[in-house]
Computed example of a mutant assay.
Amino acid sequence: MGVNWRSAIAQNTVIYSPSAPPRGIDPLPQERNRQELQGLTNDYRVGALQRDIDGNLWVGSWLGLARIDPNTGNILSRVSLPNIAIGGLVQDRVGRIWVGTYEGLRRVDRQTSQVTAENFSLPSNRVLSLLIDRRGYLWVGTDRGLVLISPDQGLRMTTLQQLPGVSANALALDPEGQLWVGTLEGLVRVNTASAFILDRVGNIPGTTVQALAVSPQGTLWVGTLNSLLELDATTGAILRNVEAVAERQISALAFDQLGSLWIGTDNGLLRYDPRVNQVVGQVPDLPSNRILSLSPDTGNKLWVGTSEGLAWVSMSTGRARAHLAFTRSH
């Protein structure tokens, strides 16, 4: 597909309150946890990317957490998180980096790269998604529900374990400031002030939601196991089902500053123009075709986390190059 890319659109660790969450499903057995985390030293997947207020890029891989200069690719610092799978990253209002791992939640000072807080009293320590709402509070999505945390005090404010669809795979904030949660059984809309469920959208193609993004126009884009949908972010009504990506598993979604939607799938990275309803390009030469995370407009590049490492895409040529420090040797 030909593409005109230029013209196209701390020092001391604080442990959180150990009070138990509401009673629910038992945690994963330790033996299963151990089996799932074996071999992480040979796993190059990059599951989370986060640009910080200094313009640097945090790379959450299954080899650890690092901060890089996105203009040069130079590694600025590494955070000591050995043998921990990272499932989510987010920056809070004062610039602290929150790291969701498969062994709980951590807070990192972006200037010292030190872990300054930890939380292991979640409904499940398997963190899949993170989001900061308009008030500055942190929502933590796990495979057994949602938790609302105060980033400053480190207090767990609310736990929503009875989440329809159970697993909070993806989170997005709509124009009204309410939280959309992608689950195993569709979508749930949550009032961020009360943590009450406002709505549920279950009858969608693909059922399991793996990725969410809000467009510049305020619509909600939803990636499932076999479809890409555009929804009204207030009512949940389906506005569009993108046939061009039918039957692909959507794993990551992100809009760039030109309004293009980047679509990460289990079989490649696509660039889609919502205005003309067309896929306008596919990126070749990535470390893997299984896309896990995206960070557009970072150092004038699109950064891409894959199952086999990290790469960046030139916004002028559309060509990809692997970051060799995070990628299996080619």
Rank of each mutant, 00 (worst) to 15 (best):
G206I: 01
A213E: 09
V214G: 06
N226H: 00
T219Q: 12
L220E: 07
S227R: 02
T192G: 03
A211K: 11
N226T: 09
I197F: 05
T207E: 15
D199K: 14
W221G: 09
N226G: 14
L212K: 01
V190K: 05
V222G: 01
I197A: 10
P216D: 14
V188E: 08
L225G: 08
T207F: 01
A193K: 15
L212G: 13
L225A: 10
L225Q: 07
N203M: 10
R200Y: 13
V201H: 06
T207W: 00
L212F: 13
S215N: 11
V222F: 01
L212W: 14
L198P: 07
T224L: 03
W221F: 02
R200Q: 13
A211M: 15
L212V: 07
I197C: 08
F196A: 12
A213N: 07
S194W: 15
T224Y: 01
S227I: 01
V209W: 07
V201S: 00
I204T: 05
S194C: 10
W221Q: 02
V222I: 03
A195Q: 15
V188L: 14
I204F: 07
R200K: 14
I204Y: 12
P216I: 12
N203A: 15
S194L: 09
V222T: 11
V188K: 04
T219L: 11
Q210L: 14
L198G: 15
D199N: 15
S215W: 12
N226C: 04
G218K: 07
P216N: 13
V222N: 04
I204H: 09
S215A: 07
D199E: 13
V190N: 12
G202V: 06
Q210I: 01
F196W: 13
T192D: 02
P205Y: 03
T207M: 06
D199S: 08
G206C: 05
A195L: 15
T192K: 09
V222Y: 02
Q210D: 08
A193F: 15
V190I: 15
S215L: 13
L220M: 06
N226Q: 05
T208E: 03
T224E: 00
V209G: 05
N191Q: 08
A213P: 12
A195R: 15
W221Y: 12
N226W: 04
L225V: 12
R200S: 08
S194Q: 03
T208R: 10
L225N: 05
S227F: 08
G223I: 00
P216V: 02
R189S: 14
T208L: 13
S227C: 05
T208S: 09
S215Q: 10
Q217L: 11
V190L: 12
P216Q: 07
P205D: 04
G218H: 02
W221I: 01
I197H: 01
T224K: 05
Q210V: 03
T224D: 00
N203I: 09
A195V: 14
L198N: 15
S215D: 04
G223M: 01
N191S: 10
T192P: 10
T208W: 03
T207P: 02
T208M: 10
V188Q: 10
W221A: 11
